[in-house]
Write a protein that binds this DNA or RNA. Sequence first.
DNA 1: TATGAATGAGAGTTCATTCAT
DNA 2: AATGAATGAACTCTCATTCAT
Lengths: 195, 195, 195, 195
Amino acid sequence: MPGEDRGVRESIIVAGVSAFRRLGYHGASVNDIVSEAGVSKGGFYHHFPSKEALFVEVMERVLFIREEGEPPAPGDADVEERLRALFFAPLSREADYLPILFDAIKASAVVRERVAELFGSYRERCEGLLRRGQEVGAVRERLDCASWAFQIVASIEGAFLLSVVSPDPTGSERLPEALDKLFETLWRVLRRIDI
Amino acid sequence: MPGEDRGVRESIIVAGVSAFRRLGYHGASVNDIVSEAGVSKGGFYHHFPSKEALFVEVMERVLFIREEGEPPAPGDADVEERLRALFFAPLSREADYLPILFDAIKASAVVRERVAELFGSYRERCEGLLRRGQEVGAVRERLDCASWAFQIVASIEGAFLLSVVSPDPTGSERLPEALDKLFETLWRVLRRIDI
Amino acid sequence: MPGEDRGVRESIIVAGVSAFRRLGYHGASVNDIVSEAGVSKGGFYHHFPSKEALFVEVMERVLFIREEGEPPAPGDADVEERLRALFFAPLSREADYLPILFDAIKASAVVRERVAELFGSYRERCEGLLRRGQEVGAVRERLDCASWAFQIVASIEGAFLLSVVSPDPTGSERLPEALDKLFETLWRVLRRIDI
Amino acid sequence: MPGEDRGVRESIIVAGVSAFRRLGYHGASVNDIVSEAGVSKGGFYHHFPSKEALFVEVMERVLFIREEGEPPAPGDADVEERLRALFFAPLSREADYLPILFDAIKASAVVRERVAELFGSYRERCEGLLRRGQEVGAVRERLDCASWAFQIVASIEGAFLLSVVSPDPTGSERLPEALDKLFETLWRVLRRIDI
DNA sequence: TATGAATGAGAGTTCATTCAT
DNA sequence: AATGAATGAACTCTCATTCAT
């Protein structure tokens, strides 16, 4: 029964998302996950070849920044809007997964590669947008797009990281606000011919 | 023999630094550490109550940004220099320890608290410096110092994080250069009355 | 459809022969076998009550020395020819199945019994042939046929065993040649009135 | 305490010998072995890196045919005696370990290599002895020593194999007697200029 | 007939920690 | 102070077999 099938897989993934979040990659045992999912151990390994494989799937689901919001804007001066959309897209993912990622990264080459890909593609999309801005005249001409793309991603990921580490709610409450300010500043810097 | 004693502790810490870096917090077993240190297991537990305790000590040593370089500047307009020093201080620490931190953070409340403290104090020092800059007139008056301090730390830590994940050397080679540009930009923004 | 039915059974057996050879009795899982056979797990258990049952069937097919080549010789002095045929018959079976047999023998009483039967019947046929040789005058009278039959079988099986274990091709290349020499010697010994 | 140390290792090996014999390589679990040895699982893995490693050690102990009984005979015509000693040496080892060996051989390359070595060295010693017999004049000159050495080992191992498989005690009771006859025959054949 | 998802006991192995010496 | 053998719970993963569909 395909519905049931998808149901079991799905419930394992959901349990995985929750268990990994609560306990970390190493802290969450397959037993934890299957008992939370209400599935037998054999069932788990019927659907996933390993705990690592489940984690990769969980990661895709939780961290992947969807491409939406970007392509439907082929216009002229909408570079700002598109950059803004890209900038705030990570806010939609589950912020507290960043440390868990790094919990897994030493244990799994696959995770390492996937994360590098993730950040790399994000950086590339930033860079592409900046270049397009230059063509259109919305971004200042003499600008090292690659280096600025790196910096943008770094600021965002760093903000996530800090908001997660800080145990007081003030820190995490500050996140959207901080990103807001960050974007305004960056945008000012980027669009001026001369700062 | 107190000299020997300190020698044993020290060699355990050194081995810990290296083993944790290579293998991560979970990946490095106490066996790995003691055999690298040339110390017996009993010796290890004589000096450290647990693996976690060693990790905290290793963390202090590797990540703690020393207060030095800051106090010797009580002058007037040297806020820029002091901010620059603070900004680049993390570069001297071992960059690849950031993911290892997150490997440990889920497994140890102590580590979690210490990391929060670490980032918190760094942010506070940034904020203090910015306020001092406002007093002296080196930083523009109307500036949310707390929020900008957050942003500065985020950019730095984010840059480290990306440089660690990216497998290509370009990414990590880019780090000092990127931080350089980041600082210049930020400083321009911070000091101008009007951007 | 009976044709299809036999086809499924057959393909399971063929896959079993191959999987057991490659991986051994314990090493070959039912999954390995059914996926090699292109059959579902349910299909497997429809045709065989257990993995052990399949192995017994595989064993029959691979190891059983067929009676053919023997009965069509009711003549007088053809004892030598018939003994020679019996002697070399095992060469036609798949030599590398001997260790796999022993892989299974501890796990299955049925296999154990069947193997004992197999070797027993071979020994009996040897013994019968020797006795017939005595009647006919082709084999020396005073000869402990039972004991010599045992010895013949031992030499053959031992040769197989060694040829399988030895990793260098010389060893296995030597097998037919060695059996040749062995037969010549034995035959000389057996047929002489006095050695 | 070195005495205690050797005691634990020893008791694990003894339990291994017994458990492997009763249950086979796959059938004997580490749990079986440690509970028979009265040792904890951790203790087992403190002394042996794996079940496979224990098996290799057990195998050495049970199957290795010690070199003794051979070197103290540098004389002239004692080739017969030395060959006889070599021939019957395997009788002192534990006969029923042969199938267990093959149970393990598919699962472990190390075991496979060690067994090949074992049989190979035995064959070489046979061959050397035959050559020495030729020099001394005790063995007929025109004799393919390599091929006969192979045949001797094959006969012995095959006899063991059969004696183990056959469930009736007659079969195993027959073993020393059969080896006796086998040796007499072989020796006659080997020493005669013309058979 | 045929499917393949589900089972769950049990496999080998790891590891932080303890403690008798 | 120092040793390293010993512990045992917990780990990830396997697999022959069952059974609802």
